[in-house]
């Protein structure tokens, strides 16, 4: 679907990471994230090692650093929040750059920033190397309820359409001189939201009828079966295995 979110996230390519089956990559991501979040926050070197692992994955997948950095902007609000933590947390204080801050707050901010950022980068790499549709197939392979996968795939397919519809309404509002200045302009925006809901719902009804006329009985056929070979599983397992080694090292020290 054109105009969908897919274009901004996915980087088409033919690297070894791109070619791995989606469910292998999903499990690798989950394993990696679990290892990072359960690492004690005082093991500073371990987080450097995790970051290095992700850098290797990015290099193998040929995803440039600039792309990852741009996509990381999504975490800006919580970075601001983490920067506040040293000033509001309790406990013994330390002097940093002439400022008196809470020791625990400083560690807490580091904890959230390090673990959060690693999670975001890992997620960005997954989305950059896997088509969203393939990811949904991967989720189905991992035994997510089929109805949930269907709902997600419809949301994905029509997300771009609905968003574009909203964009056209915004252009229509603004070309008639509308400027949203404060809460007094709410009724106009809310009427657009109402119209958007009606259009979305009616489109849903039309889609359902179109599906019925093509023989829909409640389940979607799986057109391409992606079976993972042992070699592919092994390749996908290298990231969580390396992370597990770092994690064990961090716990033993």
């Amino acid at each position: 679907m054109t105009g969908g979110p897919e274009h901004r996230l996915f980087r088409p390519g033919d690297s070894p990471v791109h070619r791995l089956p989606p469910h292998c990559k999903l499990l690798a991501l989950i394993g990696f994230v679990l290892a990072t979040v359960s690492t004690p926050r005082e093991a500073y070197w371990a987080f450097g090692a995790y970051a290095a692992l992700l850098a290797v994955v990015a290099a193998v997948a040929r995803v440039p650093a600039g792309f990852v950095l741009r996509r990381m902007l999504v975490e800006t609000p919580f970075v601001l929040f983490a920067l506040l933590l040293p000033f509001v947390a309790d406990g013994p204080t330390v002097e940093v750059l002439g400022l008196t801050v809470s020791h625990d707050g400083l560690l807490g901010a580091w904890n959230v920033l390090a673990k959060g950022t690693l999670g975001v980068v890992a997620g960005v790499l997954l989305a950059a190397t896997t088509e969203l549709r393939a990811l949904l197939l991967g989720l189905q392979k991992l035994r997510m309820p089929p109805l949930l996968v269907q709902i997600m795939s419809f949301m994905l397919r029509y997300g771009g359409v609905i968003t574009a519809e909203m964009g056209r309404m915004r252009i229509a509002r603004e070309s008639r001189g509308f400027v949203a200045r404060d809460l007094r302009q709410t009724p106009a925006v809310a009427k657009s939201a109402g119209a958007l809901f009606i259009r979305s719902y009616e489109r849903g009804e039309r889609v359902h009828l179109a599906m019925l006329s093509r023989g829909y009985t409640g389940t979607m056929p799986i057109l391409v079966d992606t079976r993972a070979s042992a070699a592919q599983w092994a390749a996908a397992a290298t990231l969580p295995a390396a992370a597990l080694a770092v994690w064990a090292g961090a716990l033993l020290r």
């Binding site: 419809f154 949301m155 029509y158 009804e205």
Partner: peptide, 9 residues
Amino acid sequence: APLAGLVAA
């Protein structure tokens, strides 16, 4: 599936 998907969108 289609309706919940569209409402989610």
